[in-house]
Amino acid sequence: MRIVIAEDAAVLRELLAQMLTERGHEVCAAVPDGDTLLAAVAEHRPDVTVVDIRMPPTHTDEGLRAAIGIRREHPGTGVLLFSQYIETKYATRLLAAGSAGVGYLLKDRVANVAEFTDSLSRVAAGGTALDPEVVTQLAGASRRGDDLESLTAREREVLALMAEGRTNAAIAQTLVVSAGTVEKHVAAVFGKLALPASEDANRRVLAVLRYLES
């Protein structure tokens, strides 16, 4: 993968670049703020960018705004936002233009480098990677509590993994069950929640999130 990193804390920026390089990826640029990020993306046309949300000068949502700009101008470039808190509002804004090639993770997730790189690859390939925290927050605030109650514990796990942007194969791997079993659970979830059934992981993410948000 060809990657551009935007993170204002030098310690983390360098460590991320080292880690990705060691895993055989190419880090085209590692920059400290939103403006230089946009310039770097225009110059290098990377497969994916890793973007911190809070960056100079205002330390609010520079990264998010840069990310939305990248999605608009370079649709082929995936964007993985990461930050120290999950704000569902940010997730909603990010996903407003579709869920293909976007991700939003808690910064803590880089502590598991293998899983973090997996998420990054998924985003680079046009998939979605949402932090479990996003799903938890949406489900917690959802007024559809009664509907969710009707799901079995396993079905709820599957729902959460779908919302995070995982494919059936990935869900099967995570839960250590067969692909067939996952398909059965997915069908049950769609049936119980009256969601439009879809095999496409990205469209599934949006369907599930809209359901949880409403």
């Binding site: 983390l12 120290q84 880089v110 502590a111």
Partner: peptide, 23 residues
């Protein structure tokens, strides 16, 4: 702000480098 830019970043970097070492 101080926590966000300071200790939290350090701890993320700490956890990350330990995971890399473990690998």
């Amino acid at each position: 702000r101080d926590l966000h830019d300071g200790a939290q970043v350090r701890l993320v970097a700490l956890a990350m480098s330990l995971d890399m070492a473990k690998e």
